[in-house]
Design a protein around this nucleic acid. Sequence first.
DNA 1: CCGGTTTAGCAAACCGGTTTAGTGGACCGT
DNA 2: ACGGTCCACTAAACCGGTTTGCTAAACCGG
Lengths: 363, 363
Amino acid sequence: MVQVIRRPTISDVADAAGVSKTAVSFAFNRPDRLAPDTAVRIRSVAETLGYRPHPVARMLSQGRTHTIGVLTPQALSVVFENPFFGTFAAGVAAAAEASGYVLQFVSPFRGSLARAIGRASVDGVVAIGLSAHHPEVEQIRKAGVPMVLVDSTALPTQPGIDVDDEGGARLAAEHLIGLGHRRLAVLSIESSEEAGVDDPGGVPARRLRGYHAALASAGIELPDEAVVTSPSTILGGTAAFAETWDSGLRPTGVLAMSDAIAIGAMRAARERGLAVPADLSVVGFDDVELAQFADPALTTIHQPIARKGEQAVELLLGILEGSIGLDQHEILATRLVVRASTGPAPDTVRLTTEGGASDQRQV
Amino acid sequence: MVQVIRRPTISDVADAAGVSKTAVSFAFNRPDRLAPDTAVRIRSVAETLGYRPHPVARMLSQGRTHTIGVLTPQALSVVFENPFFGTFAAGVAAAAEASGYVLQFVSPFRGSLARAIGRASVDGVVAIGLSAHHPEVEQIRKAGVPMVLVDSTALPTQPGIDVDDEGGARLAAEHLIGLGHRRLAVLSIESSEEAGVDDPGGVPARRLRGYHAALASAGIELPDEAVVTSPSTILGGTAAFAETWDSGLRPTGVLAMSDAIAIGAMRAARERGLAVPADLSVVGFDDVELAQFADPALTTIHQPIARKGEQAVELLLGILEGSIGLDQHEILATRLVVRASTGPAPDTVRLTTEGGASDQRQV
DNA sequence: CCGGTTTAGCAAACCGGTTTAGTGGACCGT
DNA sequence: ACGGTCCACTAAACCGGTTTGCTAAACCGG
């Protein structure tokens, strides 16, 4: 009912032009194998008939779909709400579009990513935030689908793209330490997968190591209760800082593992009468677009989010055409971006400057 | 080279189980047509062989892809950066996932959407922000691909989902008028397509009509130079307000056609020493997540962005299975959400309250 | 004028499933 | 013992392209 007029097939064109199916196929794909004027004639017949090669049929016979899948460990309905993912997807899309590839998003189907992959018609896959030790990764690899892991553990036999999370985290902590902060709190993020929370190769663990490294070499202690984990959202950050503060901790600096959490934390701080950065310094992570528009503008660790997406598909396409080995692994640099949410520690202020931060409530 | 181990086909399973291809197909799709134990046996053989039906082959023979396309008039690399689109996509994804459909995003290929659709393997399409008068819409319809237009002109023969832009805009304007504002500026958005800027059915035109309607019935004039258009981004809003203010206009209220523009305008206002809402009231449009986290929290017109996406695919799926006619068109409600970015007009303040807004700089 | 090479185009196999139209045997009532 | 149903399963056609191997004609130099 829906499709009244049958779409013309290659046979229709062949008949109308008085040639074989082969000739029509050649007219589109290998014009050099036809006399020039024949090719032109066939194409014009095809045009008047409104013929378009059926993409699915073409996929089947060529054995390639010209589609790359983006694998997410969470449902798409949650993942698309995340601006970080949006930027990553934009990068993926840019590279895919440039190479004429189409994008398909793949999320767990009835609880299983492997099942979902089986239903997807893709040449290869870019997986974001999927732990390399995830049990399904092995299944997918066995299924023979080339895959690039982004933000995952570096695995020798598995191509991947990462950023220098540990180095970035260290920069963040060193920045606060350099400003005189000694009492710090870490607002950690939940790993996107259930099992991965304490995956030693996961992003949260890597960032935590970076924080620890900087603190250790400055001889600063980070008590366990000063590390609290929450979902990487503004509300999550608000709740996490509230929990920290209300439990009696009085940090002068906050190391947040995402910008969303950092912004939420600033909100909670303001609600408690704290001024940022006069009373509390906050440094985020990721440098999403929003970070520069926050109030105050957020000091954070920049990572090339979109670039990660581009690199991932470039790597994947290289693997698909066989020009790149499977052991390729790239680590992109992170850097500190100082904006307005960090400043000298309150204690230090009294010693070095005078005035400045007005409303100090130290404990 | 890449795919060393050939993926098992239905014939492999048939041979291994000593049955016909048909039987294997039935074992998966119509178990009732097989003796129960045979079906079980076949499935277990398939399992041990690691057989998964080839999705592309299945698409070809069934004539359905179980994929719905999301059509965007701009490149995906720009569209994914837009939080509004992210929320819309989340809604689309929620409905698609619930029905077991896969998502494919389709953007112009070599400048043409029709070309892109021709390359896409989808059962139907949800188009966002595509003018119904766009020349390509007709091409796509002729191609026989069912399509639901979102945020487009209502066309009698074309199913669509819209929100009450005009009514929402009127609410926004009435809100400011009710607060005593008389000198207003409108920050308009560029239509997503080049041609559509002055499409009388487009979203910007509809919202502008709503503003005008409210102003007209209050007897307030809106000079042409008080309507300025910019891209729907924070920076766009900053620039637009700057342009307005620096050209000598001194509005006490701003009607922004998107939240991003509103937030940008607040930023520009603050840079000029204006306090929001004491000196300037700003009302946005859309109610994206960010609106509630802006400082001050943004008064805006709420529209059900994600719900629009859900409705669109529900409508599309209904059309695909033939249970819904092609003339269906839904208009979702909008409503005013009052937060902290609007308040009494400065002039009025002196008359009705005393004190309150401190730092008034009227001209 | 002749054997060898190129050129232009075609028939048929193939990709991996689904679906239609049977087929042979078991079971049934009479 | 016999015609009719049912049941369990299969052979072959089909979806709409691409690709391989081949043939007949045109072209070539000697």
